[in-house]
Simulated scan of single mutants.
Amino acid sequence: MSQDLLLDVRHLKTQFHTKAGEIPAVDDVSIRLEKGKILGLVGESGSGKSVTGFSIMGLIDEPGRVVGGEIYFQGRDLRTLSGKQMRQIRGNRIAMIFQDPMMTLNPVLRIDTQMVETLQAHEKISYKQAWARARDTLGLMGIPSPETRLKAYPHQLSGGMRQRVAIAIALLLRPDLIIADEPTTALDVTIQAQILSEVQNLTRQYGTALIWITHDLSVVAGLADDLSVMYAGRIVESGTVDQVLDQPQHPYTVGLIHSLPGNNVRGQRLAQIKGMTPNLLDLPAGCAFSPRCPRASRACEVRPEFTDQGGQHLVRCFHPGSQLAGGVA
């Protein structure tokens, strides 16, 4: 095993039990992430990417449960740890940034109280030292007048500022891994670009690994080192960002790229992937994407396994290729 390998998720399966049956939200997902690297996890809503992040963090609540696979973090299988052991790792060695910063921030406590308590919960540190570190971390996130912001309550900050504070709290303990679940989706593009740049610089500076969960390929294009594309609970394509975006092999990946506004001719209708995402309770036999795929054939009635397209560029498809006859719409 590589000394730089930080996270090794093997054949992860997470299901939600409902009256209608078991929903395979995450189905045989494997991820490898090295120190200081950024992985983009991309897919439509309902593809399972957020549930993958919550499964790694051990935050799946009933009626959901992780039913299979291994989650090795620094060589330890997180699935074998007790609740107390997991709480010591969560927030300390692994942190999560949520789409809604109010899932991180307590609305009735000042920012300095929340940041100082976070530090003192995991480290033996004085209030003065913790306060100074909180102030410096806010400054690293590009927050102006950090001393003033520390004295504010969450409702006194703008949405973009609250998200920066939430990210600062995630970075406060210098975790080895951060899982970011679409934290910039609700922000305007200017603030989004600033936060992406700051997060990228900080993770590289401290050697922190990052999983950036998003539905927006344009976000991860300039941020991530590697990219995994999810569909209906499975990773259908993975590789370096350049491999996946410059030479996409799965029809779904090609469809996502073609549907970006910048890839469409001005004045014409936006390209789109035909059909709808499948009901996870009633997945088609074989490849889940086959009902929407212009290349589907009888071979697709069997579930495809990964094939290597070269240089660890993996794809689950019987008809891989960057150009699709007849387009994607």
Rank of each mutant, 00 (worst) to 15 (best):
V199G: 00
Q200W: 02
L202A: 09
T203D: 05
T203N: 04
R204V: 06
R204S: 15
Y206N: 11
G207Q: 08
G207W: 05
T208C: 08
T208A: 04
T208I: 14
A209G: 10
A209F: 06
A209K: 03
L210A: 15
L210P: 03
I211K: 00
W212N: 08
W212F: 15
I213G: 12
T214W: 10
H215P: 08
H215I: 11
H215C: 14
H215N: 06
D216N: 04
D216G: 01
D216L: 01
L217G: 00
S218L: 13
S218E: 04
S218H: 04
V219W: 00
V219G: 02
V220S: 01
V220R: 00
A221E: 14
A221W: 05
A221T: 11
G222C: 03
L223S: 04
L223F: 14
L223H: 07
A224M: 00
A224V: 03
A224S: 13
A224Y: 00
A224P: 00
D225K: 01
D225R: 01
D225W: 01
D226L: 02
D226K: 02
D226M: 01
D226Q: 09
L227M: 11
L227G: 09
L227F: 13
S228Y: 02
S228W: 03
S228G: 14
V229K: 03
V229T: 11
M230D: 03
M230R: 05
M230E: 01
Y231V: 01
A232G: 07
A232F: 04
R234I: 04
R234F: 07
R234V: 15
R234D: 15
R234H: 14
I235S: 12
V236T: 06
V236H: 09
V236F: 10
V236M: 13
V236Q: 07
S238T: 12
S238E: 08
G239K: 12
G239V: 06
T240N: 03
T240D: 02
V241Y: 00
V241S: 05
V241R: 01
V241E: 00
D242L: 09
D242K: 04
D242N: 12
Q243I: 11
Q243S: 14
Q243D: 15
V244M: 04
V244G: 07
V244K: 14
V244A: 12
L245G: 02
L245V: 08
L245W: 10
D246S: 15
D246I: 05
D246G: 11
Q247V: 05
Q247S: 07
P248C: 12
P248A: 10
Q249F: 10
H250N: 15
P251A: 04
P251W: 03
Y252K: 07
Y252C: 10
Y252I: 13
T253L: 13
V254M: 10
V254F: 07
V254T: 12
V254I: 08
V254Y: 11
G255V: 07
G255K: 06
L256Q: 08
I257S: 10
I257G: 05
I257D: 14
I257Y: 13
